[in-house]
Design a protein around this nucleic acid. Sequence first.
DNA 1: AATGAATGAGTCTTCATTCAT
DNA 2: TATGAATGAAGACTCATTCAT
Lengths: 195, 195, 195, 195
Amino acid sequence: MARMKDESKRATILQSSKMLFSHKGFYNTSVSDIVKETGLPVGTIYTYFRSKDEIIQDIVKEGWEEFYVRLERALRETPSPEERLRLLIDEFIPELLGDLDFINILLSEALSYTRIEEKIEKITDLVFKLLTSLAPDSLGLAGLARRDIEALLAIFFIGILNAVKLARTSSIDMSTEDILGAVKKVIRNSLRIAL
Amino acid sequence: MARMKDESKRATILQSSKMLFSHKGFYNTSVSDIVKETGLPVGTIYTYFRSKDEIIQDIVKEGWEEFYVRLERALRETPSPEERLRLLIDEFIPELLGDLDFINILLSEALSYTRIEEKIEKITDLVFKLLTSLAPDSLGLAGLARRDIEALLAIFFIGILNAVKLARTSSIDMSTEDILGAVKKVIRNSLRIAL
Amino acid sequence: MARMKDESKRATILQSSKMLFSHKGFYNTSVSDIVKETGLPVGTIYTYFRSKDEIIQDIVKEGWEEFYVRLERALRETPSPEERLRLLIDEFIPELLGDLDFINILLSEALSYTRIEEKIEKITDLVFKLLTSLAPDSLGLAGLARRDIEALLAIFFIGILNAVKLARTSSIDMSTEDILGAVKKVIRNSLRIAL
Amino acid sequence: MARMKDESKRATILQSSKMLFSHKGFYNTSVSDIVKETGLPVGTIYTYFRSKDEIIQDIVKEGWEEFYVRLERALRETPSPEERLRLLIDEFIPELLGDLDFINILLSEALSYTRIEEKIEKITDLVFKLLTSLAPDSLGLAGLARRDIEALLAIFFIGILNAVKLARTSSIDMSTEDILGAVKKVIRNSLRIAL
DNA sequence: AATGAATGAGTCTTCATTCAT
DNA sequence: TATGAATGAAGACTCATTCAT
C-alpha cells in the first residue's frame, strides 16, 4: 500500500466518524473512538478538523450538498414535470433513504450542528415548485393554501426520514419499502397521476 | 417516624430536568445543572432517582402515560366516531403539541430511553381503529392497504411532532397552527368529513 | 414471630456484618449493605453502634474475648500440661480455624480496628507458658532463647491463620486438615511428645 | 515526534502509590492523594495506568517479578545446596523483609489484586526443591510427608511476612532481627546444618 | 426510641483539545 | 507537518452519618 494521500485521510475520518456517530450517537462517540476506528493519530484528526463538532457538521454539509446539488441539476435538466416527479420519487428519495447512517446523523442529537431546518426548507421549496408545475389545479381543488402545502411537505419529509430510521433501528414492524410504497400511493391519489 | 419521601421534591426534579433536557439536550445537561436548577443537594436527586437515565425515562413514561390513559378513556367513552375524531384532533393533539418540552425530549438524543417506537405503535393502532370505524369505505377506495395506512400514520405522527419542534425551535417560517391546520384539511379531504 | 428483643437486634447486626465483611471486605461493604442484609432501618444500626468502625471492632473484640476467655479457663482448670496441650491443639485451635469469617475479618484490611497484635501477644504468652511447663529441657536443648520462641509462636500463629484463609479462599491446593496435621507433627517432633 | 511516554513519571507514580498504599491502605488512598504526592495532574496518572487497581497490581507484579527472577537465577547459578540455602537466608529473605512497604501491600486489603497465593506457591516450590536437594534423609526421618512440608513452608512464608509487618507496624515487642534469627535457628536445628 | 430521607464532600474516571517534540 | 503525551475541569455517582419527624 502506498502512502495515503491527504484528502483520503480526511475522507477516512469523515467515513469512520459517520459510522460511529450513526451507531453510537454523537455524544457517545469520543474522539478517541475515532482514533481507534481510523487508526490515525489524534493529532491528525485535529489537522483536518478544528473540533469534533466540525466533523459532524462536515459530514452533514458535504453529504447533503452532494445529494442536493445532484438533485437540483437533475431536476433542472429534466423538462417534463412528470419525469421530474419520477426522478425524485424513484431515484433520489430511495437513495437518500438508503443511507441510514446519514439519516441517523441528520436526525441525531446535536441537531444544532445538523441544521436540518435548512434542509427541510430547501427540499420543501423544491418539491413545492415541482408540485405546482405538475398539477396546479388539483392542488387548488383540494383547498390547500401554500402554507398548508409547505407544512405538509415538511411533515412528510421529516416524517419519512424518522419513519425509516425507526423502521430499521427499532423493532417496529415496518420496512423502508412499506414507507416508500405508501408515500407513492398518497402522491398518486393526491395528484391523480400514475407513477 | 422519619421524614417521608416528599412527592413535591420528586416533581421538582422531574420538572426542572424536563426543562433542562428540552432546552440543552440530555447529554448537555449535567446532574449538577439539575442541582443548580432545583436548588436541591445532589444526594437528594439520587434519593428520588437511581440515575440520570432514570430521570429522563420517568419524564417520558409519566408524561406519556398520563396523556395516553386520558386519551384512551375519552375515546372509549365517546360513542360517535365523528366526535372521537374531533376529540383527537381538537383536544388531544393540540394539547400534546402544546407541550414543546415533552416533544423535544421524546424526539431527543437518548432515544433508547425514550422508546418512541412504542408510542408510535400505540397511537397508530388507536388512530387506525378510529379511522376504520369512521370511514371504512373511503379508505378502501383510496386503494390503501392496512400496511400503507399504518406507515402513513407513523409518518404523520412523528412528522408532526418533529415539524412542531422545528417550527418553534428553529428559524423556519411555520407555526404550530399552520401544521395543525394543514393536517386537519388533509383529514377532511381524505375522509370527506367536515371537522 | 414475636417482636425481636433488642439484644437480638444487636446480634443480628453483628452476625450479618461479620458475614458481609468476611465475604466482601470491610471497605467494600457499605452500611446500606448491612441494612439490606439485616432488614433493619439505618437508624437502628446507629442506635446500636456509633459507627461502621465500631461494628468491626465489636465483632473482633467479642469474638476474640469469647474464645480467649474459654481457652484461658479451660487451661486453668486442666492440671496436666500434656492434657492442656491436647486441649489447645485438638479443641481450641480447630474451633478457631473453623470460623473462617472470623479469620477473614481478623486478617482483613482495616487491621487498625482489628488489633491483631494484641491477640498474638496474648496467645503467644499463653502458649509460651504452656510450652515451658511442658518441656523446659527439650526447648532449652534446642538452643532457642525466649525471644526466639516468642517470635516463632507469632510466626506460627499468624501463619496458620493466613494459611487457612488462603487454603479456603484461593485456589491453592491445601486444606485446613493439611495445615493442622503438619502443625501437629512439628509440635510432636519438637517436643518429643505424642499427641 | 510527539512527547514520548516518560518512564520516570511512571516510576514516580508507582513509588508514591506504593508508599501511600502501604501507609494508609489501598482503600484509604484516593487517586487525588496520589496526585498530591506525585505533583502530577490527574490526567497523567491515567495516561500511565488504566485505573487505580492497575497501579497496585503493577506495584505487586513488578516488585515480585524483579525479586523472584533474581532469586531464581541466583539459585540456578549456585551449585552447592548449602550455599543456595545461605543465599536464600542471608541475602534474599532479608532483602524481601527489608521492604516493608512491599510487604504491607502484598498482605493488604485488595488481596485479589495481590494474588499472594501465587507467590506462596512459587516460593514454596522453590524452597521445597532446595530442601530436598539439601537433606532428603533428615526430612524423611522427621516423618514429614511432602504435603506437610508444603503446608509448613506456606505457614512459614506468610507467617514471617506478617510477623515482620506487625513487628514494625504495631507496638509489639519484636524486631525483624528477632524473627530472622529465630527462623535461622529453626532451620539449622531441623536440618542439622550450620549456617 | 425509632425511622429513613437528607446531606455534600469525596470517589474514580473521562475527554476534547493543546503543544512540545 | 506529524505525533501522542499532557492536561484539569467536569462527569456521574456514593456513602457514612445526622436529625426532623
